[in-house]
Design a protein around this nucleic acid. Structure first.
Lengths: 268, 268
DNA sequence: CAGTGGTCTAGACCACACT
DNA sequence: GTGTGGTCTAGACCACTGC
């Protein structure tokens, strides 16, 4: 974060004693509320890794003096970032960059719940890596990952077991460049959630995701890997996960067995 | 809304000149922030129908003087209600009670999207009422609707067609008492969304819903009504919809054909 | 024009966590 | 105690809407 950038309103100031300095390029969009500009500045700091996942960001008061705005304005910016799960506020301690690690919430985006009990009752999932290789991006994968067709990508195929029962078959596609150095060995030795490893090893934090869900029937290989009958109905979940700048960083195609689990969704 | 109730903090006042009046029962939970108490009071007004869907609620300034708090406190309460889609703020006009009517958003909770184009491009859905009768609640339905087994309930079965193609088969269960007077005729003559009719005719507004999603295969009757082959994979969507007090008011079991549509979900 | 919500400030005190 | 975020107030001005 460059503290040299002072937010400029573009319009007249609103009672604040901030004379817009000369030569202020509109890094943040002009004519937008001050707190939105602050939000953009904070977002830049997050994106550029000035504050890493799990770290403490400066206090509201410090940010207020740094940006030459009131504490209330900084507060509103942080409030919105916290609402987007990018920051976490802890009364008495400070504001932290959200992280996939530490949290006992094992799977950030997984909405599959067991019919009996809750997510914690079934304990840790078992991971079984089926395959992991580098290859050239097919056209459809390339489109989702915003890379060119034929660019190097990583493809990981794995099965997740809950309570000993194979439940999810996943095909994970990652862009090759940001994940340079990710090997099958690294994957196999890993214990925690994959997204936590992405943060720790590659500095890539997944912030948001879109899912497209369909019903399909199990193919021969699907049914073998998931230990179900051929033509068993499965939930097809195609997820695109994004980093800070709405940059797609992962395409994950999952097949969920839904006889003892269900996909839970809350509508508001 | 009874303006007679003044919110009480329970703890000492925080610089506000509000002397807690005598005989203030803790309608809102004690020891909670003022704005939360205001939120509860507003919620009561919504639940009791003081302001009906689509109507204008009093201005922030009026509510502030009525509740003897500052405008900022009312603002924070309204902000949260607006974030929950219970109120809609319109700059220069006022704050309105959210409604399923007017909005061109035809289906409040339906997340099914066509593969090509967006929701608006496929035009209006065609509704085909298959069946509608009153009967005694089976145990599982009764549990979802928070009524006793055997209580009178309504069951509506219908098919939704998009672009002429049967796509959704729905089984809708409603508690009998609140929906007294709902007939097959009334359903058939209705043009707009069902939830809009619930508001207008019965004063019941759906505020929130939970869905459980699974993959299933079409039964003989399913495949007939949806014009697909037997054993076609279908998305099973079980939705429980709630009114203001987290009171369940509808159980909707849907089967979605997902060869030309998909269920869209955004994860944050 | 008046009235509404939207933004911004300045200052106060409370609740909480760490030392 | 010190420092953090959380709440609350009072007053100012801006932006939008409709008369």
């Amino acid at each position: 974060m460059s503290p040299s950038t002072t937010p400029s309103n573009g319009t007249t100031d609103q009672g604040s004693g901030i004379p817009p300095g000369p030569g202020e390029a509109a890094l943040a969009p002009a004519f937008s509320p001050l707190y939105q500009q602050i939000k953009s500045l904070l977002l830049n700091g997050l994106r550029l890794g000035e504050w890493k996942p799990g770290e403490l960001i400066p206090s509201e008061i410090e940010l207020a003096t740094r940006f030459r705005v009131s504490q209330g304005t900084v507060r509103k910016a942080i409030d919105e970032l916290a609402a987007d799960n990018l920051l976490i506020r802890r009364q008495g301690r400070g504001t932290f960059v959200a992280t996939h690690a530490e949290h006992q919430v094992q799977y950030r985006f997984l909405k599959l719940m067991p019919d009996k009990g809750d997510a914690s009752s079934q304990g840790q999932a078992q991971r079984q890596i089926v395959d992991c290789k580098r290859l050239r991006a097919p056209a459809d994968v390339a489109r989702h990952l915003a890379v060119r067709t034929g660019e190097p990508v990583l493809r990981i195929q794995r099965v997740l077991h809950f309570a000993g029962k194979p439940t999810i078959l996943e095909d994970i596609w990652l862009p090759g460049a940001p994940f340079k150095g990710l090997t099958t060995e690294r994957l196999r030795q890993d214990q925690g959630p994959m997204y936590a490893m992405f943060e720790a090893e590659f500095g890539i934090r997944m912030v948001r995701a879109d899912e497209k869900i369909r019903a399909v029937v199990a193919s021969a290989t699907d049914s073998f890997l998931l230990a179900v009958a051929v033509a068993t109905p499965l939930l097809s979940v195609e997820r695109t996960a994004f980093t800070y700048n709405d940059t797609p960083m992962e395409l994950r195609r999952g097949l969920y067995v839904t006889d003892t689990h269900y996909y839970r969704n809350a509508l508001n």
